[in-house]
Amino acid sequence: YAKPQNVFFISGTDNEDILSILEDKSNEIIKTIKASEIIENQVRMKKSLVSDAQVQKMFGISLKIGFGYKYDMVRDKFIWLRKEFNSGYNSILIYEVPIESVEKDNNIIANITAMRDEIGKANIHGTLPNTWMITEAAYAPYLFEVKVANKKTYLTKGTWELKNDFMAGPFVNYAIKDTKNNRYLILEGFTYNPSKSKRDWVFELEAIIQSVKFLK
């Protein structure tokens, strides 16, 4: 019963009964474990945070930015935070779009994909000429509807790649509906860690993104 950890008690009359319960409750168990891991990441980050003053000033939100992240690019209504490590890097993008950019029709996933591809072409370039970040065309992203900061949010998970290059990796894109300010606030995290596990790095990105608080 050490903290932090989750303990699940599963009992049944026989093996089949226990397996049936596990299958029935698996999504709930996974969701609980993931939520706990994100909270633990947030607790660790609090010990050495990077200033979010520029984020507050530009977007009216606070964000718990973990140690090692630096402001890689700051433009009008666009911020790129990056943390480099031995085998790659983590990135967080912050920007906003009008509500109609996401909700112009019923094809939300296509609208979000087009939006992030446009942002990638304008801002996220490779070292080679004529290279920029796009959503990987070979695999359709997954779309979920969740709540972040008690606001309706579209969570998109997929793979990014550099057009005309060979770099790629996973991304998580949170489009948070901010009706009061007539916008979708976009918080996106993506990682580049070739040939190595990316799980913990993605958890770190989600921990930072889910710490968001709206100040106005």
Rank of each mutant, 00 (worst) to 15 (best):
A2R: 13
A2F: 09
P4F: 11
Q5S: 14
Q5P: 08
Q5L: 10
N6A: 10
F8Q: 08
I10P: 12
T13W: 10
D14A: 10
E16G: 12
L19Y: 11
L22D: 08
K25M: 11
N27Y: 08
I30W: 11
I33E: 13
I33T: 09
S36Y: 12
E37M: 09
E40I: 06
N41C: 10
N41P: 00
R44A: 01
R44W: 03
K46V: 07
S48C: 09
S51F: 08
S51A: 13
D52H: 02
A53P: 03
K57F: 01
M58S: 09
F59N: 06
I61R: 04
I61C: 01
I61K: 00
S62F: 01
S62D: 15
G66W: 00
Y69Q: 12
K70R: 12
Y71P: 13
V74A: 13
R75N: 11
R75Q: 10
K77V: 03
K77Y: 02
K77R: 09
F78N: 05
I79C: 08
W80L: 04
W80M: 04
R82T: 03
N86S: 03
S87W: 07
G88F: 01
Y89I: 01
S91P: 04
S91V: 04
I92A: 06
L93S: 04
L93E: 09
Y95T: 11
E96A: 12
E96L: 09
V97L: 05
V97K: 12
P98L: 11
I99N: 09
E100H: 13
K104P: 02
D105T: 09
N106C: 04
A110Y: 13
A110L: 14
T113Q: 15
A114W: 02
M115G: 06
E118A: 15
E118D: 14
I119E: 08
I119L: 08
G120P: 00
A122K: 15
A122T: 05
N123Q: 11
I124H: 01
G126P: 05
L128R: 09
L128C: 03
N130D: 14
T131N: 10
M133E: 04
E136W: 02
E136I: 01
A137G: 07
A137P: 01
A140N: 07
Y142T: 01
F144D: 05
K147D: 07
K147A: 05
K151R: 10
K151L: 03
K152P: 00
K152E: 04
Y154N: 00
Y154D: 00
Y154C: 02
W160E: 04
E161W: 04
N164E: 13
M167L: 15
F171L: 12
N173I: 03
I176H: 07
D178R: 05
K180V: 06
N181V: 03
N182Y: 00
N182W: 05
L185V: 05
L185W: 00
F190T: 03
F190H: 05
Y192L: 05
Y192G: 02
K196I: 00
S197L: 08
K198P: 02
W201P: 05
V202E: 15
V202C: 05
V202M: 15
F203A: 08
E204G: 09
L205T: 05
L205W: 00
E206N: 14
I209Y: 08
Q210F: 07
V212M: 09
V212F: 04
F214Q: 12
L215N: 11
L215T: 15
K216L: 09
